[in-house]
Amino acid sequence: MPSETPQAEVGPTGCPHRSGPHSAKGSLEKGSPEDKEAKEPLWIRPDAPSRCTWQLGRPASESPHHHTAPAKSPKILPDILKKIGDTPMVRINKIGKKFGLKCELLAKCEFFNAGGSVKDRISLRMIEDAERDGTLKPGDTIIEPTSGNTGIGLALAAAVRGYRCIIVMPEKMSSEKVDVLRALGAEIVRTPTNARFDSPESHVGVAWRLKNEIPNSHILDQYRNASNPLAHYDTTADEILQQCDGKLDMLVASVGTGGTITGIARKLKEKCPGCRIIGVDPEGSILAEPEELNQTEQTTYEVEGIGYDFIPTVLDRTVVDKWFKSNDEEAFTFARMLIAQEGLLCGGSAGSTVAVAVKAAQELQEGQRCVVILPDSVRNYMTKFLSDRWMLQKGFLKEEDLTEKKPWWWHLRVQELGLSAPLTVLPTITCGHTIEILREKGFDQAPVVDEAGVILGMVTLGNMLSSLLAGKVQPSDQVGKVIYKQFKQIRLTDTLGRLSHILEMDHFALVV
């Protein structure tokens, strides 16, 4: 994948999101292997301009796509893939009243899908469409860049269908997702969380590099694949309309690839034109409109599966009536509230959605109805927002919020430890010299600072030695090549209790 991002070429006709291997024109390309080798690009942008032909009021008969309808489940399912879809609609009884809503608040519980998330729908649909058009064949390999849930859905379907599955996901995604993927037989590649989507090191860039190296491999490409919004247009939206008897006044959905909100909203605009569509985008993402909503100094966020630093091709923002931004604290607070007060075992993005819903639905009156999409299960986040310690460490809970008995030293300040200034190293000294210094002084790690004293990161003896043994660096290389740029900081005025929580999850903390 090139470091400079080429513009994806656009073909003359058809839909841009065809499933299957992508040609340089962004659509299915038939021909000899030699032709494909000559024409197939190194990668295709996940934010390529959409060429979708959908228009409100256009006859369904003019759609270029294969459409399906929700099917009634048999008493005995032939395999677990038949437990994807037909998820329950559940009334939220307490939270709406707590925040003064007059309307009825309903939750579409997508964590009841077989793999635990709304992404099971698009995973199965992308595979079925690729099999139907002859792209996927027995023994082929599926590769997908994902925040985890699409990966789980694909790995689940691949396990049943017999495909090899490789999932490329950023490091910030939970260990629970990784464990589930491994249990399903998927191979996992992790990428830096802070890598831009168009960087060769991003999950998108690495996935395309693997595709170019592995024979008979395919990126189904949830960011561009029409099967993504079509899955929701054909099934999720129809289920909502049936469950609500066609009567709903507002739908609120958090947005990642945009397939969920695009597919549902398009069908609702056709069948229930008075329904307002509300999009939820986390602070630090750029999906919301108008652009002024996205202006923030924050560039990272903890909530998973929603928000991006690019506009995915499948996201149709014209069908969203209003956007709201959400933050991590309210997302996790509301997710825990949904679990504790409503018994809905949902993930953090569901918290984002409901946090926005109780604001947006203030305009609705008694007798009206708001539906929220709860995308995934708490299963993926047992060591994250479900953990009091994690919430404390991230600053989303305060010590006084917890009532468990603490040891005698818990409320003492870090400054009472009488710490001395640490050994520091410059980023320009060599790895070999740094190892000598650390061994001589008896230290395992040291902060790396520039000549102005600005902290650049941390270097550890173990990481340097393993990097040297693996051949990633040489003793003569500058130590700046092996620094940890993500590390926890703590102030002298913070409590030892807070430091204790940090050290339970990290090997060190830097006192500043």
Rank of each mutant, 00 (worst) to 15 (best):
V90N: 02
K177S: 00
A69V: 12
D245N: 12
C244N: 03
S175F: 12
G256D: 01
K211M: 15
D35V: 12
T87E: 04
G100Y: 01
D129C: 06
N113V: 06
C272N: 04
E171K: 09
A114S: 14
N228E: 02
A69D: 10
D79R: 09
S61R: 13
S19I: 08
E4C: 15
I76N: 10
S63A: 15
L230D: 08
A48D: 14
D234W: 03
K102C: 08
R18A: 14
P70K: 10
A157E: 06
K25A: 03
K36W: 06
K75S: 15
E128G: 01
P21H: 09
R164N: 08
E176M: 03
G205E: 07
Q7H: 14
I143M: 06
L184K: 01
V180C: 06
K75F: 04
C103L: 03
I44M: 12
R190P: 05
Y163H: 02
S3W: 02
S23C: 04
G256N: 02
C52L: 03
C244A: 02
N216P: 05
I264Y: 04
H66R: 11
P215F: 15
D133R: 10
T262Y: 00
R182Y: 09
K30S: 03
K102V: 01
A183N: 04
K36I: 12
S147W: 00
K36D: 03
T257S: 07
L241N: 03
M169E: 02
E29M: 09
G100L: 04
A186Q: 03
H22W: 06
D140I: 02
L105N: 00
L230H: 05
D47I: 04
G100N: 09
L105P: 03
K94E: 11
E176C: 02
S63W: 01
A237G: 14
G11N: 10
G151N: 03
I214T: 05
T193W: 07
S174F: 01
Q7V: 14
G162D: 15
A207L: 00
R91M: 06
Q222N: 02
R190K: 15
T191C: 04
A8V: 15
T87W: 00
Y163F: 06
G26E: 10
T257R: 01
G259P: 00
N93R: 03
G116A: 09
H17N: 09
G162A: 04
T13P: 09
S254L: 06
A24H: 13
